[in-house]
Amino acid sequence: MSELMLPKQKYRSRKKRARIVRLILHIVLLLCSLVFVFPFLWMLVTALKTPAELLRGIDVFFPAKPQWSNFIDAVQKIPFFMYLKNSLIIVVLVVFGTVMSATTAAYAFAKLRWKGRDKWFIVMLATMMLPIQVILIPTYVMYSWIGWLGTRLPMIVPAFFGGGAAFYIFLMRQFFKGIPKELTESAIIDGANHFQIFLKIMLPLSKPAIVTVALFTFMGTWNDYFGPLIFLSNPDHWTLALGLRAFQTQYGGQYNLMMAASILIMLPTLIIFFFAQKTFIEGIKFTGIKG
């Protein structure tokens, strides 16, 4: 009898323990979240303040009367939807281009043996070590020579050729290296070529990594104002991140509107993150693979 009871009791106590662990985890997570949510909360209360309350700076936390109209003002004062369209054009193409150029190069670095590979790898890392400011002017001059000023091309084309993608190439390489060799080798034996391996094995198996690359590229491009500032000469091409800077006047001024608009442009990134991180739960697991 007792032998029969034991597993059930064990199961019960384990279940109880798991519940306690879960409770503790919730408490820890909630406490940590508080710390991380704070900046957002600060943005929100700032977005709802009056200019007079802004002037008092950090003395005032909650606005006496929330100014929800700031959100409407922020959208109406700038050509919000034109900027939104411009941001979308650039972001979608840059994400697409970066994912393409980063995954192909990463495959070369991770899975193929070619002459000079390790040297090129160092060169790739080195491209990240040169502070961007010192190549800004020559880059601009180059774009003016090839007649790209006044177009969106300087913001888009480089992404398709690994411009600024060194970070992502390295990241993808790390993931590709983790994909079992046996998979590729058996595919080769079955007569697949490298393009097929890349498309049919590598890409599907590294979904979380690709999502990460796409997510980071999206965030980086969506929030970048400096690139558009320098390289987009036509104000009709301006993006949201750059357009928002208008609220940052010489002496403080309208940063309630700025926060309101910032929250609006932040929301899509948050929604995208929310869905992107789901792939980290359903993530691909190589269950059936034998070594």
Binding site: A108, T127, G162
Partner: peptide, 26 residues
């Protein structure tokens, strides 16, 4: 593989040499 390696790296390599080389050199 040698050729294919360069082929896969070529978009990035092309970008580095055509778009990156001049500013870096300058």
């Amino acid at each position: 593989e040698n050729l294919i390696g360069y082929l896969f790296a070529s978009p990035w390599l092309f970008g580095l040499i055509v778009l990156g080389f001049f500013p870096i050199l300058m």
